[in-house]
Amino acid sequence: MSDTPVTNRLAPRAEDTVGPYYPYSFIDGDRSDLTRLHCGLSVGPQGQQIILRGRLLDSDGAIVDDALVEFWQANAAGILRTPDNNGHPLLDPFFDGFGRLITTTEPFAFRTIKPGALPAEGGMAARAPHITMTMFSDGITRLVTQIFFDDESKANAQDPLLASLPPELRERLIARRVEAPADGPAVYEIAIVMRGPGETPFFDDLSS
């Protein structure tokens, strides 16, 4: 770090592993299903209900359990619930887009609304529908990536994040729609490979 420029910025604390003992009880309120945040009401979020079924895999191909996974996404109209969108007419009062679960030895299932494409605005490019995933577990510090959908190939082809990756890596971020009962939510599957052959691309939100 000898060529680090002189700065009066404060030095951040080092990101560390969440370790093996993150209290389960901090996961209060079920955030693994964003379609029923308002239980007991006959109204709910707009859009197509989906299940993102995923496996977090280590370099042996084993499922990583006890990982804390967080999801962040736009609503069906492609609007993120961020402060700059306060009062946006297309905000969905029944959807906030933040999910959270702890993995077990089974694949996880995140039930949500299929996010809409983000419109271009303020100099930012339009984005294909996607879900941001943040992962914490014993052995790693925070990992971040974004998951796309295989039935959005036209939008995917235009997406600036996918475009920044070599073609063989893009595929690893695309969830595949699989057979599911017609009267239930659409099911998409994704494998997140933390290390080794087929490793998922992860992104650096501290350096970029």
Binding site: D60, M124, R195
Partner: peptide
């Protein structure tokens, strides 16, 4: 750690895609 830490460098986020990486 040796089974879970990515072996590849992290990828930089293009500025045009930065917005949705910031959960609120």
């Amino acid at each position: 750690a040796e089974r879970r830490v990515p072996s590849e460098r992290l990828h930089l986020i293009p500025e045009a895609a930065r917005r949705s990486f910031v959960p609120w």
